[in-house]
Design a protein around this nucleic acid. Structure first.
Lengths: 209, 209
DNA sequence: CTTAGATTCTAATTTACGTTAGATTGAGTA
DNA sequence: TACTCAATCTAACGTAAATTAGAATCTAAG
């Protein structure tokens, strides 16, 4: 007797994954409305109609792509942070989190780009379905800064809410210029962490200008 | 005799502007492929076919919207910077530029959101047509930091290229959370300028953690 | 009031997308 | 070999989008 294949190891689950990958790629490039099932199918040598054996609709396919995206980011960030050991300093923590997020969105860019580029442009049902995952990920960052504030390592006058959003912006925007920049993910991560920690300004000495 | 109406003050140019405004709004909300001429027309009580009296195609209409967007940002930033007088300090200059950019993208958000959200998702011809304007605007910022470096007010080790991209990211990403944040444009501008100038980190005193 | 030109509408054309139903294929099993 | 089930394909259906041509309307000038 051969191995009994469980539901989750059927051959079709390989195809299912192929479809998701192809959909992520198209979604990241052309947006929800610019992604056509015909193209998704063609890119893996299938017919559009065949996709319906694996997914109920375009909407549910796209929904799955977007959910996968956020979980992927979360997983990678968690991994990077866990590498740090027990009681990491705030700068190290921030650097690790930024590195993780950037690795996720720049190296696994099909899925994560899909998520970032289509924020607010997908049907409401699809957008809402991904909200819990987004909230959970946001909380991770929120707590990171709450902890830092509690430990007194945040300068007076800094609004950590706006800080978090600024960092998110810098990171996510990198998806747009990364490929053309020649910079490595590590370089970008270090640079951004350093900027948000210490800024770019050299005070004093030459006075006015 | 009444005023001779020139080409640029014809009544139709008013309609033309209405169409552009409506298109910008839809484009910012639904993306290029999710924007339908029928919807654009309906939102100003017209029929889709009538748009073709003013524009040759959907593509050319959208192209004009995107070009307008970037010029709009540039104009507002220029205005804010010019308010500063002759020889402004780098911090003041940066604050003014950030404020201008944020005013543009948050207050005139239909056009500018259209530009930001559809980056890379429009047909290549449309994207290419807006490139000169984008380049010109980018140069403004490039020069801002070149000057600052020449004046020795940038900390050693800071890559102004990555700095500029980080600032762009923080600013442009604000389009996503601005409406729900309750923060004012001025607050956000001050916060971001302050962060990029001096960072968030309070060194020393409590040592390790 | 008439008329010419500008502007808009109506209705049709073309194209293509999402979706579906039924036929077809192919691999493993009795 | 014949059968079964999973997986895919084929060929359509219905809908809707961009575009177009010609008719209808509105405006301003004589």
């Amino acid at each position: 007797m051969t191995l009994k294949v469980s539901n989750t190891t059927k051959k079709s689950s390989v195809t299912r994954q192929l479809i998701l990958d192809a959909a992520a790629k198209k979604l990241s490039q052309h947006g929800y409305h610019g992604t056509y099932l015909k193209d998704v199918a063609e890119s893996i040598n299938m017919q559009a109609g065949s996709l319906y054996y694996h997914f109920n609709s375009k909407e549910s396919l796209m929904q799955e792509v977007l959910n996968k995206s956020i979980q992927l980011i979360q997983d990678i960030v968690n991994y990077e942070v866990e590498q740090l050991g027990e009681t990491p300093s705030f700068p190290d923590l921030l650097k690790a989190a930024i590195r993780g997020h950037l690795i996720a969105i720049l190296r696994h860019s099909d899925y994560t780009l899909a998520s970032i580029r289509n924020y607010g442009q997908v049907p409401v049902a699809v957008h809402k379905a991904a909200q819990p995952d987004r909230d959970a990920y946001e909380n991770f960052w929120r707590e990171l800064f709450e902890q830092a504030e509690k430990n007194g390592v945040i300068r007076a006058g800094v609004d950590t809410h706006l800080l978090r959003l600024a960092i998110f912006g810098s990171m996510n925007w990198a998806t747009i210029w990364y490929v053309d920049s020649g910079a490595s993910v590590e370089e970008i991560a270090d640079s951004q962490a350093e900027l948000f920690l210490n800024g770019c300004y050299k005070k004093g000495e030459q006075g006015g200008i």
